[in-house]
Simulated scan of single mutants.
Amino acid sequence: MGLLDYIFYTFIVVVFFQVIYYLFFLGQFSFFNQKHKSPKKLDVSVIICAKNEAENLKQFLPSIISQDYSNFEIVLINDASHDGTLEVMEAFSSQHSNIKIVDVKNNEAFWGNKKYAITLGIKAAKYNHLLFTDADCKPVSKYWITEMCSHFTTNKTIVLGYGAYSKIKNSLLNKIIRFETLITAVQYFSFARIGIPYMGVGRNLAYTKAEFFNARGFMSHMKIRSGDDDLFVNETANKSNIQICFSKDSFTKSIAEKTFKKWFKQKRRHISTAKFYKLKHKILLTLIYVLNFLFWFLAITLFVIQFKWQIVIFIFLIRLIIQTVVIGLSAKKLDEKDLIFFLPFLEIFLIIAQLTIFINNLISKPNHWK
């Protein structure tokens, strides 16, 4: 058997495992219909950590204040900002009695560490149920708190939500950012459904104060600059205490980066935390990436040399159809249907971008969250 035969059969094996991955892993979310949860009358602390976010607070904080929910407070954390962030917070606080401000000064031991600021905010929170978002995020409806908190139970103490990005017409970068966000969400929702949760996003995440302190907060990874959301979930979540929420009223929406340079820098910071995940999660995520990379590399190789091209095209189309169906159903749930038409191109670009970011992070490491 020659080299081309080995490449061909390797391609078949890769596609076989990818089909299993899409149908039996990602399918856990794609084919799942969540039942509507009855609203719960829980007291909730909404926590927003802001560093130099004066303009974003002016624009987005009113959508938090106007939430249709019976009893909630807003804990605004000013993380050593040097713009007018604190003044904006104080202006809102003077008009709304349910706003509490935590003004964090730079601490030599925790310089530039968002986790230190969030910890102080959590300690200041009045209620046990905590709901997190960012200063540049806006809930898509006035029922955001209601929807997210309806998934809390006695045992379910961590709720994963979806943090989307606003759509920009005719922007390739915007589509890439939203596609990466979609795929990440489909993965963490699916893995949570399977019972091996590994991450969440701080743009839309809820957990209890008791869960936070039982895990000793961020102490095990306090020295790691990023990861206040995904590393905390990775450490504390399990199949018994995790719940997902993806009703459209529960989404938050952020403004995406407008240049490749800024997005690349942002993703470097996010991806740098993955090496601190539990071993089983690192193995699974690495395997998923390697299979994606091999699929496109082997497919393109076999197409170029036209080795058994009829069979290769048939196998390629089967994989592409299954992927489109599974990701398409998820995209419909998460209101990202416009991305499906560009799926192959966006996937190839993302594979290249992730490899580039991984190599850059090996050379130099990102340090601060802002």
Score class of each variant (00 low, 15 high):
Gly2Phe: 07
Val13Phe: 15
Phe16Asp: 09
Tyr21Pro: 02
Gln28Glu: 14
Phe29Glu: 12
Phe29Ala: 11
Asn33Ile: 08
Pro39Lys: 08
Pro39Ser: 11
Asp43Ser: 15
Asn56Gln: 13
Leu61Tyr: 03
Pro62Asn: 07
Ser81Pro: 12
Gln95Cys: 11
Val102Asp: 09
Lys114Gly: 06
Lys115His: 03
Lys123His: 09
Ala124Asn: 05
Ala124Gln: 09
Lys126His: 02
Asn128Arg: 07
Asn128Cys: 05
Asp136Lys: 07
Lys138Cys: 12
Val140Cys: 01
Glu147Cys: 02
Met148Leu: 14
Ser150Phe: 11
Ile158Lys: 14
Tyr165Lys: 10
Ile168Met: 14
Leu172Glu: 14
Asn174Cys: 04
Arg178Leu: 02
Ala185Met: 04
Ala185Asp: 13
Val186Cys: 13
Tyr188Trp: 10
Pro197Asp: 05
Tyr198His: 14
Met199Arg: 15
Met199Cys: 09
Gly200Thr: 03
Val201Gln: 15
Thr208Lys: 00
His221Asn: 10
Asp229Pro: 11
Leu231Gly: 08
Val233Arg: 11
Asn234His: 06
Ile244Cys: 15
Ser250Asp: 13
Thr252Glu: 05
Lys253Tyr: 05
Lys253Asp: 10
Ile255Trp: 02
Thr259Phe: 00
Phe260Ile: 15
Lys261Ser: 14
Phe264Met: 09
Gln266Met: 10
His270Arg: 07
Ile271Met: 12
Lys278Trp: 07
Leu284Gly: 05
Leu284Ala: 14
Leu284His: 08
Tyr289His: 13
Val290Glu: 00
Phe297Pro: 00
Ala299Glu: 13
Leu317Gly: 05
Ile318Lys: 06
Val325Asn: 06
Val325Met: 06
Gly328Pro: 02
Leu329Trp: 04
Asp338Ser: 11
Glu347Phe: 07
Ile348Ala: 14
Asn360Glu: 07
His368Thr: 14
Trp369Tyr: 15
